[in-house]
Each structure stands twice: as structure tokens, then as C-alpha cells.
Amino acid sequence: MRRQPALSRRLLLGSALLAPRLARAAEPVRFGLLHTLSPAPFYLAQERGYFRDEGLDVAFRFFQAAQPIAAAAVAGDIDLGVTALTGGFFNLAEKGVLKVIGGGLHEERGYEGSAILVSNKAFEAGLTSVDKLPGHSFAITQYGSSFHYMLGRIAQAKGFDLSSVSLRPVQQISNMLAAVTSGQVDATIAIASQARPAAAAGQAHIIGWAGDLVPYQITALFAATRFLTDSPEQVRRFCQAYKRGVADYRAAFLRRDPQGRPVVDALTLAAVADISRYVFTGDPQAEAKILAGVGYYDENAALDVADVLDQLRWFRAEGLVKGDADPRSMLDTRFLPTR
């Protein structure tokens, strides 16, 4: 029922724009992304025809994990992608084959993105705040992942040594959550949509939010260098459509009322309807899950350049990224604003 307005609006938009679009054939663009809630602005841009408006026929290539998205761009399977800025990503960017072109999800103060989740056992034994992490085990997906990075930044912020935490790579996000709820590992990082239900069910405790501790650029839009060189015009048009998607997203999810609570209105519900065509499809609780899981995107998809350079510095210092390429050469800021 709620889908009705969005659908009819899309039909309207479609018929209004049909004639001019037929004039030029849509150009194909292959876009790599995770099949999760985090690239929601791209879902909106696709569902609402913003890519088509720019004369692009964007094909989504979904991936199960973040790392292969960058590799697929290197291999020539995709032209553009959105992914977490990880050690693996920077190692490929060091070779000059990938460039970061815009912002994505951002850990931001006051927006609950990723939670520090602690097992009941460890919590009862006194692990009740982030500065007590030293001496405890901590599940991450892999060395060089965003979780490793977040913990590293938390360690810096709280003034403890990262090597005093026993890292446990468990490959998958689902394993991280299971390791903590089953008490096999003391702590981990979990996104809000997973952390909140686990805490509510008494399976674990949330002792802090990464956005409050270490705000940073968690995902970013990137392009294969080859595509940037060969088709800058298409990149520009893609970014225009993306900006519209981000604008809709911010309007739908990031508005706050005077008490600081998220505003949920018709705009929100319309966006939920569009997004639920990609994630939580057919799930009766899709709306609640989407509202619980949306994270922060900067206005106009701005890229936090200083933070990206900070990240690279950290990965290099940890020995996770090797190379001495000019960090600026890994960025291309012609298409989207910076913050």
C-alpha cells in the first residue's frame, strides 16, 4: 500500500522523460556494490530513474564481501564501485589502477552506525567501557578490514596500544556477531541493525558507538583509472545522479526534529519502499530494519579527503599497505565536492 505513491510517481516521471531519453541510447555502466543497506542512495538513484535521466544504463553487480569489489574493478568486470576503504583497497590503489572519487557512508557523531559490542561474559567481568579493551579478544573480519581500522583509531583515541588487544580474524561479519553472542570472543564491532537486536535480546552489550568515538569516512565511491581516463563524461553524469540519490536519502532519513529525533514522514516511507526492493525484500519488518540501519551520508556525497589520507597513513604505519605512491594520486576530486 505504501509503495503506491512512489510507484505512481515513478510512472509519471518515466512518461514525462520518455521522449527526450529515446533520443540518445543509454550508455552502459557497470557498478559494483554490496548487497546490503549501506549503498541505499544508489538504490534510490536507480529506482527513481536518476541514472536514466543522465543517459546511463547502470547495471548493479552485487558482491558478498567488500574486498572483491575493488579486485573486480582491477580485473575490468566493473567500471565504478562503492566499497569500504580497507587495506586491500589501498594496496590496489597504490598500483594506480583505482581512484577514490567521492564519499559514501560516514561514521558521524550522533548517528549510530557501528556499535562496539561486548559479550555478556566479558561485560560481567568488567569490560564495560571502550578504554578497558586492552587484554581482551576482539573479532574482526580480517587484518586490514574497516573493523581493524576502527579499532586502531579507537585505540589511538583512547590512548592504548592496539597490540594489547588480541585480534581474532573470523572472515565474515556473521561470524563476528556469533563469536561475541556465543562468548567465544570478548568484543567486536557490529552495525546498528545487528547490534541493537542482539543487545535487546540480552545476548550482548553495546559499550559505545564508533561514530561518537572516531568519526570517519567508512565507504567511498571509486572508479577504475581506465574508466576515468576513457569516459570522464560518464563518470560526471553518474556522480550527478548519485548526488540526487544522496539528497533524497538525506531528506528521507537524516532529518532531525527539534528534540534531535529522526523525522519519519511520507518522504521516509517512500524511500523505504524503494530501498526494500533491494534489501529486506518481502520482509514484513523491512521498514523497521531499514530505519534502524541507515547511516550517515555527507551532503552532495562529499568526500572527507583529510580522513581518507589519515586512513592511508594508518594502514601504511601498521604495515598493512605497502607502497609509496603519492596519496593524492589515489584521489580524483573533479566530480564530487570534498569536505
Binding site: 587495506g87 586491500g88 580480517q142 578490514s145 580474524p169
Partner: peptide, 23 residues
């Protein structure tokens, strides 16, 4: 060594693969 190994050749290879550290 996929799950929860801090050290080990298998864990080392997995981490290197994840970091695209081909050497």
C-alpha cells in the same frame, strides 16, 4: 586457520590475500 587464528601460515595467506599483498 580461517576463524580466529592470530598466527599460522594459513591465517597469514588469508590476510595477505585480503590485503591484495601478492608478494
Amino acid at each position: 586457520e580461517m576463524i580466529g587464528a592470530e598466527r599460522g601460515i594459513g591465517a597469514f595467506i588469508l590476510a595477505a590475500g585480503n590485503l591484495y599483498d601478492m608478494d
